[in-house]
Design a protein around this nucleic acid. Structure first.
Lengths: 198, 198
DNA sequence: GTCTATACACCGATAGAC
DNA sequence: GTCTATCGGTGTATAGAC
């Protein structure tokens, strides 16, 4: 009925798609379910996108772009490096608990991307972004606590991303908060040993 | 044509299903693809199983049962605890590299199970089994190196499973062997600090 | 028990009226 | 540009001959 610019329509559909994936899983994210979520007709979908595949690509790319909420947030506490890192990981854990479906959607989108050679690079870009954000946080953390990394920060960041992924996956399965805090503690311990106090 | 007991047929279909999921992903694991892989007709499927859902449940359960290849294999080296653990994680990593599609299939099956309330317990059982196997390995590792855990071994094992999951997921994305070895090293470092040398 | 043939729902995508 | 109606294809599941 109302005329909506194609760009807005694309954005609305991508938002709807992410909500559907979060709520019901990627298997249920059919074009029909997505347009229903967006309150559009099926034909409008194919006016905005050539195909469902094109939307999925766009969705993954958008999701990478919007990963501003870093592995560890901006405002880090002061203190010993190990404590700063642990606080950051715990902060991420709180974020995970606040919106588990979102992180589950991220995991599903990654797995989905890994299954086709054309999309695999999208997953790699997603993880490069994760590592980049982790790297920034770790540099700030070292600065705050007056420590110096004696391992390339990029490598430390890659380990942090791996540990964070593991925390996420295992918690999504067993929802064991105490166990995940132990993971956060162990992760911070291991990471902090890659730096020397100054 | 030939008469095959229902039980054998079920086993053959489950094996075929796992191969299809490994090779092409869970989204492609349709009943048609599975019976084609097993060399059966479509009707034979529904003679052996009431529904596709029933096969998926059975597949996940079977996969749990067959997780004998522990997170860390039986024959652990002697030496300092940290080295024994790292060797074990590296051994798992070699296993991952030898058959990445299998581990990818495990991850997809877990994610799939998480999406329905009835199947979530299956995923939890899968992870309890992982933790149990990790626990056994960690007990042996401590024994070999003459160390004593000062944290409940079950908790250490849960952390090991999380770290291993993270190593798996990140490696499947970027295939960065060096980075994954760094993850293995950091993981062993953190875990070994949960024990005291005797 | 095992097959071929088919029912029926839902998928992505498009035609054509407005 | 946006809709309703529909196409062709594929999904799970079943009927009925053998």
């Amino acid at each position: 009925m109302t005329r909506i610019p194609a760009q807005e329509r694309r954005a609305a559909l991508i938002g709807a798609a992410l909500r559907v994936v979060s709520r019901n899983g990627i298997a249920q994210a059919t074009t029909r379910a997505i347009v229903a979520e967006a309150g559009m007709s099926l034909a409008s979908f194919h006016y905005a996108f050539d195909s469902r595949d094109e939307l999925m690509d766009e969705l993954i790319s958008t999701v990478i772009e919007n990963t501003r909420r870093a592995i560890m947030p901006e405002d880090l506490a002061d203190g010993a490096l190990v404590d700063v890192i642990e606080a950051g990981v715990v902060r991420y854990f709180e974020h995970l608990k606040a919106d588990p479906e979102h992180e589950q959607a991220m995991l599903e989108l990654t797995q989905y991307a890994l299954r086709s050679p054309e999309r695999h690079p999208l997953a790699q870009a997603q993880y490069r972004r994760y590592v980049e954000l982790a790297e920034q946080s770790l540099e700030i953390a070292a600065e705050r606590s007056g420590a110096v990394w004696h391992v390339p920060v990029a490598q430390v960041a890659r380990v942090l991303v791996a540990f964070t992924d593991g925390l996420t996956l295992t918690w999504l399965v067993d929802r064991d908060d105490a166990a995940s805090l132990a993971v956060a503690h162990a992760a911070a311990d291991a990471l902090s040993r890659m730096a020397d106090p100054r």
